[in-house]
Nucleic acid binder design. Structure first.
Length: 124
DNA sequence: ATTCTGACA
DNA sequence: TGTCAGAA
């Protein structure tokens, strides 16, 4: 199962493809890269090449934002997930665990909410 | 035609 | 975040 992970990390998608796949603007995608949430490689003329992993993260960022988290909150979530998966290469994070962490983050700082202050009740 | 960086009426 | 400019 190493071959699969290798291909998921293959940087082969140009900006245009990622924009369509994620419904995000180039501006946002570049911004998330600056926030070290994704690490697209560069190619020929300094053009970004994204991997399936980058796209997955972008998709996660999307729904975290729709859940009401701001950039600070999104970064924490992605970073935690990254640490958790790097350190715990063994067992994957259970849905319950992720929801638990998510809830803790929301409660730890009532300021994390930004857009839909009421989306939580509906979701959680 | 596409994407990149930098900047802001 | 959008968007425009100037370059590659």
């Amino acid at each position: 199962m190493k071959d699969k992970e290798f291909r998921r990390s293959m940087a082969v998608f140009p900006m245009g493809a990622v924009m369509k796949l994620t419904e995000l603007s180039a501006r946002q995608i570049r911004y998330y890269e600056e926030q070290s949430l994704i690490f697209p490689e560069r190619s020929d003329g300094n053009r970004r090449l994204f991997s399936l992993n980058d796209i997955d993260v972008l998709l996660e960022i999307k729904d975290y934002l729709s859940e009401g988290l701001n950039m600070a909150g999104v970064k924490r979530m992605i970073e935690m997930k990254r640490e958790e998966s790097e350190k715990t290469a063994k067992r994957a994070l259970s849905e319950e665990e992720i929801r638990r962490i998510f809830r803790e983050e929301l409660l730890s700082q009532g300021g994390l909410a930004q857009r839909n202050p009421n989306a939580f009740q509906a979701k959680m």
